[in-house]
C-alpha cells in the first residue's frame, strides 16, 4: 500500500529511515507535506496575493504619488477620525470587558447566561443591521432623534454616531478573550490576597489584573484591529461627509469609486500596514503567553 500512494516529491520508501516518526499521532512525511502545502497555497492565494496587489498598486506611480495621497486634507481627516474612533472605543471596551468578564467569571447570578449571549450579539448581528439600529434610535425620525436635535446634539451623520457603532461592533472582543482565562483561574489567589489583608482594589490591581494581562492585551489588539477596519456599521451612520465623517475604510471606498486608484490603494496600504503591525503584536503576545 505504501508504494501505491506517493505524494509529489516525497519518497515514502526512504523517509522512515531518515525521518523517524515521533509518536503515534504523527503522520507520514507525505501526508504532512501535503497538509502544509495546502495551507501555504491557500494563504498565498487569499492573503499574500491581495496584500501584494494593495502595495504594488499603491506604488505603481512611484513613491511621490504614494506620499502625495497623505498630504490630502480629506485623507488626513479620515486617518484622524479612524484613530479617534479606535482611541475612544478601545479603552471603553477594555473597561467594559474587564468588568463583564470579572462579573461572569467570578460570580453566580440570575441572568448570567443572558448576559453572555448579549455580549456575543455584535458577533452574530450583521454590522449593517447594527448601524441601522443606531439610526433608528438616534436618527432624525428615530426614538431619541427629535429630542436630541432639539437640544443641539447630532449623533447620526456625525462623529458620535461613528464612535457609538464602533463601540457596539467591537465590544465582545475584550470580554470574550478575558472570560476563559478568568474562569480557569478560579478565586484562590484572590482569596489568598484578601486573607493577607489586601482590600478589593489592591487585590484587583496586584493579583487579578497581572494574571490576565496577556489575555487582556490580546483582546485589546483584536478590538483595535476591528475598530480601525469596521466598514458596514460605520457606513450606515456616517453620512459620508468628506473631510468630516469619513473613516479610512469609507475614504478608501470613495477614492476607489472615484477611479483614484493610487490614493485608494495608498490609504488601503496604510490600513493594511496597521493590520500587519497588529498581527505582529499579536504574535509577540502569543509567544509571550506560551513561554
Amino acid at each position: 500500500m505504501a508504494e501505491a500512494i506517493t505524494w509529489g516529491e516525497a519518497r515514502p520508501n526512504r523517509q522512515p529511515a531518515t525521518v523517524p516518526r515521533t509518536g503515534a499521532t504523527s503522520e507520514p512525511a507525505g501526508v504532512r507535506w501535503l497538509l502544509i502545502g495546502t495551507a501555504a497555497a491557500f494563504l498565498a492565494v487569499f492573503l499574500f496575493l491581495p496584500l501584494a496587489v494593495v502595495f504594488s498598486t499603491a506604488l505603481e506611480k512611484g513613491a511621490f504619488a504614494y506620499f502625495k495621497t497623505f498630504a490630502d486634507p480629506d485623507t488626513l481627516s479620515a486617518i484622524r477620525l479612524t484613530l479617534l474612533a479606535a482611541g475612544i472605543s478601545v479603552p471603553l471596551n477594555v473597561a467594559f470587558g474587564i468588568a463583564a468578564a470579572w462579573v461572569i467569571g467570578k460570580f453566580e447570578f440570575f441572568g448570567k447566561s443572558l448576559l453572555i449571549t448579549l455580549i456575543d450579539l455584535p458577533f452574530s448581528v450583521s454590522p449593517v443591521v447594527a448601524g441601522l439600529v443606531f439610526v433608528l434610535l438616534f436618527g432624525l425620525q428615530g426614538l431619541f432623534g427629535p429630542w436630541l436635535i432639539a437640544h443641539g446634539v447630532r449623533i447620526i451623520f456625525a462623529i458620535p454616531g461613528i464612535v457609538l457603532v464602533t463601540i457596539f461592533v467591537t465590544f465582545p472582543f475584550v470580554a470574550r478573550e478575558l472570560l476563559p482565562t478568568i474562569q480557569a483561574q478560579g478565586n484562590d489567589e484572590e482569596e489568598a490576597a484578601l486573607t493577607l489583608g489586601a482590600n478589593g482594589w489592591k487585590t484587583f490591581w496586584r493579583v487579578t489584573l497581572p494574571n490576565v494581562k496577556w489575555a487582556l492585551l490580546y483582546g485589546v489588539i483584536l478590538c483595535n484591529a476591528r475598530a480601525m477596519g469596521e466598514f458596514g456599521a460605520v457606513s450606515v451612520v456616517s453620512g459620508h461627509i468628506r473631510g468630516l465623517t469619513d473613516t479610512m475604510p469609507l475614504h478608501i471606498e470613495f477614492l476607489y469609486n472615484d477611479y483614484q486608484f493610487v490614493p485608494a490603494f495608498a490609504v488601503a496600504s496604510l490600513l493594511a500596514l496597521l493590520a500587519l503591525v497588529t498581527l505582529v503584536a499579536k504574535s509577540i503576545v502569543e509567544w509571550r503567553t506560551q513561554s
Partner: peptide
C-alpha cells in the same frame, strides 16, 4: 478576612503565579 488577621493556607497553595 483581612481584619481578622488570620493566616490561611490553601490546599492547592494559591500562590501568586506572576
Amino acid at each position: 478576612p483581612g481584619e481578622r488577621q488570620v493566616g490561611f493556607v490553601f490546599q492547592h497553595y494559591a500562590l501568586f503565579r506572576h
